[in-house]
Amino acid sequence: MLTKDLVAASSKPLVLSILADGESYGYEIIQKVRELSGGHIEWSDGMLYPVLHRLERDGLIKSEWKESETGRERKYYFLSADGRKALKTEQHQWLAVHNTLSKLWNLKPASI
């Protein structure tokens, strides 16, 4: 399990990366993170929404209410142009950390 600080720091690149694959809503984003991390990253459900709202306020993502096939209305989020730029910056920063640690730990470095 990740520490609280790391969960907070990684939520932005994780949300932006998931939305880069296409629009999604809160519940689905949490499911995806849980699935992709193999259960190592567990977000408390309600706390994702402040993250989403902050990203929306900063103009990195946008939202829209839509009706799903089941008839349930959901608030869908999608990436804005600024969000794509922010994602690129995040990628560089996280890979810089990742590559440095990989070298120190004699692991194979990653590239974009």
């Binding site: 408390s44 459900d45 309600g46 929404y49 709202h53 902050r54 306020r57």
Partner: peptide, 17 residues
Amino acid sequence: HRVGRPQPLAEELEKAN
């Protein structure tokens, strides 16, 4: 339980907006 209590949620949402 998973969604969370209203008070802490409200505080976080208020900070976000």
